[in-house]
Design a protein around this nucleic acid. Structure first.
Lengths: 342, 342
DNA sequence: AAAAAAATGTTAATCGTTTAAGTTTGCCCA
DNA sequence: TGGGCAAACTTAAACGATTAACATTTTTTT
């Protein structure tokens, strides 16, 4: 139980050498003889000095080996979401290998400027609801990598959401079908609702809108029908939002033949809801998901969905951040999983 | 795109006041006149100074508003584990309210001493496999709260695992039954195996052993039978480990009547395995879980398990850490969920 | 054997703040 | 009128390291 913390200076005095030499012993082995270095290091161990103070190092060196991962929604929700947590796993594995630490940050919380001074960079996952985050990110000077959305001037990691949604929808929709969409973060509302004519949110950068574009293109190509009041907005995938939307969509007069869901979580909720109501899937209703989470492979009937590797996304994002200035945006591949719901 | 970072000194010169005054404007409003304070703050906004550098503040003030959450296993696994991620959600909610940040830390990675200098404290979740972590924790001087295990001198958050396991087992086991146990982290092995006579791991501090004690007491009280080669060790709950143990346990000659599992994840895997083999649950085989994750309520037949509130655990842990020196250990309550598997 | 190069140390400035202690000013009251 | 006291600022010493630039010794080269 050491009460007093030793400093580099204390150690230097005790050993009768300069602080520079102690510092070099820890940081730049080539700057002193191996013999002296060993002597210093073992002496430090003996007297209980565990190395240069990190806080001081951060200030002096200007970097901390800490990378902030900024999650679009609150940490709690994101961490329990399988897609997001798998993503974090990917990031974490690469960072860990590089000896970096992971600061988990909630985008909806207070300002990121609280940490911008000492983290080495930001990995931002998912489009933030408020534009404040974007502004702050460009106000500060640390490198940024965005995932599943784009920010001017920052390398990003994405799949081709438009194309993925298009292909998925195309294989689900039959000529002339009626279609509904359970979408994510389409408009600025904290609750489940149909979008009608509400202004679309962040239409240029958000992946939700790329997916919507893809769906719409497929609907056109199949000469299918849809209207704005058959497009639902969910603020997040979590249980209640999805359940409510599912119920609404299933109790429309003249129920849609096909419902396209922007996440597997939503699709699974919808599926359970439909089965509970005695609706035959895919006989009476076809359902598609998005993401390819493990659970999707276990539903009965098995969900059709777009598989993307969240873990790879995380790894690539981390690598891009570590790569520094010459990092270029990456578009990852996806795969269609043809299940039994279409 | 500011290229040069302004410092307090720059601002002070520009405004013609001392650095102390600027600093006070940000940190100690009572030290200067309101008029001047407003003037300074708005001036700062104008010239693009976003407040004192945090790295310097950490060094000078000696605290950072960062709390490290140390996870027993690797971050990746823990984050995707429903129990652990719910726990993190709890921690995060309290920290966020207190304006603290959350550094996610993998206990199995490198030393925590990397961050001990600048975090304000540690919340350690789950017994670490290696004792190194414990040593390091007491080597450093920041406050520590442990969860689901104990560390000498540190406040902890637990349920009464022995009693919970006892009660659960007691209601599952019938007089004279044969029993098997699928346990977690009982011995020092990276793979699934029966424990036979391997030395038990960390027997004093680990909750696994409290649970084991409880099971054993119930087995005695019910005059049931068990042997060391019917106690399995799993390094973690994750899929493959559980599946392997489940298969082994179910293919023993003279299969056990009751299998007690130390987590719901394990129990669910076992249940699926048993149903897949055409075994009638609970007719031929009774199963109990532990934790009370959401998914447990959705299995058919519904799992019997011990429910504990992971989110509360997280909240309490965070509050204990924030409470400082006068924090006392807390024992949370649990509830038996009598499902259809016993 | 002298000059050049390399190896090993030290000195002191610096990173960007905070804050105890000191200074100046203005105000009140006897 | 001047002593006592706040209020409002400033000065300057930390916080605990890193790292150019310089100084000294040892080794290598010619």
């Amino acid at each position: 139980m050491k009460k007093v913390k030793l400093t580099l200076k204390d150690v230097a005095e005790k050993l009768g050498v300069s602080t520079a030499t102690i510092s070099n012993a820890f940081n730049r082995p080539d700057q002193l003889s191996a013999a002296r270095r060993d002597a210093i290091l073992t002496a430090c161990k003996e007297i209980g000095y565990s190395g240069p103070n990190k806080a001081a190092q951060i200030l002096r060196k200007g970097h901390s080996n800490i990378v902030a991962v900024v999650l679009a929604d609150n940490i709690g929700y994101m961490v329990s979401d399988p897609v997001a947590s798998t993503f974090i796993r990917g990031v974490s594995s690469v960072l860990q290998e590089a000896g970096k630490h992971l600061l988990l940050y909630a985008g909806n919380a207070t300002t990121i400027l609280d940490v911008a001074d000492f983290v080495d960079g930001f990995i931002c996952y998912g489009a933030p609801q408020n534009t404040k985050l974007g502004d702050e990110l460009k106000q500060q000077s640390k490198p940024v990598v965005t995932v599943d959305f784009n920010l001017e001037g920052c390398p990003s990691v994405n799949i081709d959401n438009e194309e993925a949604a298009y292909q998925m929808a195309l294989s689900a929709i039959e000529e002339g079908d009626s279609v509904a969409i359970l979408g994510l973060k389409l408009i600025d509302s904290p609750s489940t609702c149909r979008i009608y004519d509400s202004p679309l949110l962040d239409a240029e950068t958000a992946i939700s809108h790329r997916r919507l574009d893809g769906y719409m293109r497929a609907i056109q190509d199949r000469h299918a029908t849809i209207s704005n009041d058959w497009i639902w907005h969910l603020p997040e995938s979590g249980g209640n939002f999805a359940r409510q939307a599912a119920k609404e969509a299933l109790s429309t007069t003249d129920r849609p033949r096909t419902i396209l869901c922007m996440s597997d979580i939503i699709a699974i909720e919808l599926l359970q809801c439909a089965l509970g109501m005695g609706i035959d899937v895919p006989g009476e209703l076809k359902i598609t998901g998005f993401d390819g989470i493990d659970e999707a492979a276990r539903t009965r009937p098995q969900l059709s969905t777009v598989c993307q590797s969240s873990i790879e996304k995380g790894q690539v994002a981390a690598r891009l951040l570590l790569a520094g200035d010459d990092a270029k945006s990456e578009v990852l591949s996806f795969e269609l999983l043809s299940g039994e719901t279409i």
